[in-house]
Design a protein around this nucleic acid. Sequence first.
RNA 1: GAACUCUUAGCUCAGUCGGUAGAGCACAACACUUUUAAUGUUGGGGUCCUGGGUUCGAGCCCCAGAGGGUUCACCA
Length: 576
Amino acid sequence: MRILSEQELLRRKALEELKTMGINAYPSATFPVDTYSIDIHDRYAAFEGKEVTLAGRLMGKRIMGSASFAELQDAKGRIQVYLRRDDVCPGEDKAFYNVFFKKLLDIGDHIGVVGVVFKTQLGEISVHVSKLVLLAKSVKPLPVAKEVEKEDGTKEVYDAFTDAEQRYRQRYVDLIVNPQVRETFRKRTLLVQAMRDFLNKRGYLEVETPILQPLYGGAAARPFKTHHNTLDMTLYLRIANELYLKRLIVGGFDAVYEFSKDFRNEGMSRFHNPEFTQMELYVAYKDYAWMMDLVEEMVETVALALHGKTQVQVGNHVIDFKRPWKRISMYGAIEEAAGQPVAHLDEQGLREVCAAKNVEVDDTFGRAKLIDALFGELVEPHLIQPTFITDYPVEMSPLAKRKADQPELVERFEAICNGKEICNAFSELNDPMDQRARFEEQLELGRRGDVEAMVLDEDFLRAIEYGMPPTAGLGIGIDRLAMIMTNQPSIQEVLFFPQMRPEALETASVGVDYAAVGVPDAWLGVLSTMPYTSIEEFKGANPNRIFNDLGGLRKKHKIEAPVPTVEQIKSWQAAA
RNA sequence: GAACUCUUAGCUCAGUCGGUAGAGCACAACACUUUUAAUGUUGGGGUCCUGGGUUCGAGCCCCAGAGGGUUCACCA
């Protein structure tokens, strides 16, 4: 275990003092909250002079003799509370104010207050407290950020808790002290709700399909693999749910959707987390052109729900989601960027264009990959405003239907926004013969070493052999959309708990019973703060080092007892 | 996986030429009955990420490692 900091020791001591005062630091009774801080701010006139009951975290204390101000932070905001000694201690005994409030109550503690709403001389809306109770003690100091309101009404934050590693590892702290982080996650939830409402209003059915799948499919990605003991079989965490939702379309539902956590065992970056969220939607009797209209309308609705307008500030750009969005074919977009026609070019011709435009390619690239490289390099990063790119080469899209007049292309589109794909959709391939042939091509890619090639799913093929109606399908990346809609540069900012390498957490020295080896009581406390997690570790430690450390800890913790001799320490180690 | 970069008090950060560490907030003590980053005075608080090396001497220089960030690779 880590040696406790000065402030942590003080708070533990405060716990003891609370006990001697007869105050339970962790009471179990409910506390009858009837008001949020934001309600009082929003409707001051209605609350003025009324008694309210609030609960929240103490986030600041300003003590001025026998009167004090404090900041109370609840789930919806903050409000100042005003406390007078003689209000909370009407009798002779002033300990509640002088000791409990002034000394034992710390920033971070959960408290409940009852008081009357009023405005201070300086106009700050406050609660004049008549009763204050401790609801839960905090024994670990919070990072303290100071916020000052400037004359123009804008707020400036000093010493904010900003270290990315700590913010992600201890998101709970991030959420306590950074209100804009709470707001980002609230917006993410609103986004999902807006989409769900939009789809439900159209009568689409929200469904759930397996996360553990015997075969993974529906996307090109490497899966996470696991094992089921009872069935003694390999299972994969889904990389997509496409093939299951299409089975439901075969089954007769004409519109199904699912918000799904998907898992891909691939690189991590500011745009990639191993688990992420997609919304997939399948609608029978529709095609990709119809789906473009739906996507435009849905995303526009989301923007309005979150911002009240269609324009959204994203980095240095203002992105406008107002319908209609630009639509351009993949070839058209490349031709626009390259300044020359490419649709008719063969592999060699495309290579020359890549060379002329300094697009890096590989000898193994076929025609489709060359197109993809040109698009990824010349077009995609420059598409800031939402744009539909349509008609992809068939090789890149094994689950999409061919265009009737151009069978080397498929009826597919992606929406690109802020230089990144936010959704992918197509007219679903429902020709079981063609689907089997496409799977065979994927198998061949797999045999040639493509680790992301799709596997053949016989049951899925059997399903569409029964006949799948013409269907439009959509996958929309919720994390990426949330990043754009909340103006966040990294996926970690829109995931509560982004994936991290394990933290080297210092563990308690539970393995060593120091009392049993003859350590006197006075030294048990500090020894247990030393970093030995096992008897072996303690026995193997340098006794001189322990001697020195105990000397230091003695001073630090003001221990009266004499420092044990090195000989004594050796005897403890021998007894261990 | 690669390159670059960061890691110093609870938080945000300084740290000069290599001479065993500083500030603000937070914390402790005292004063203070409407404050607004409350204020004033005083004080305590450090595994300088870890492990090696160079050196009389390392927060600083060198090597290795851990973790974070960014970019790239990968990635619908």
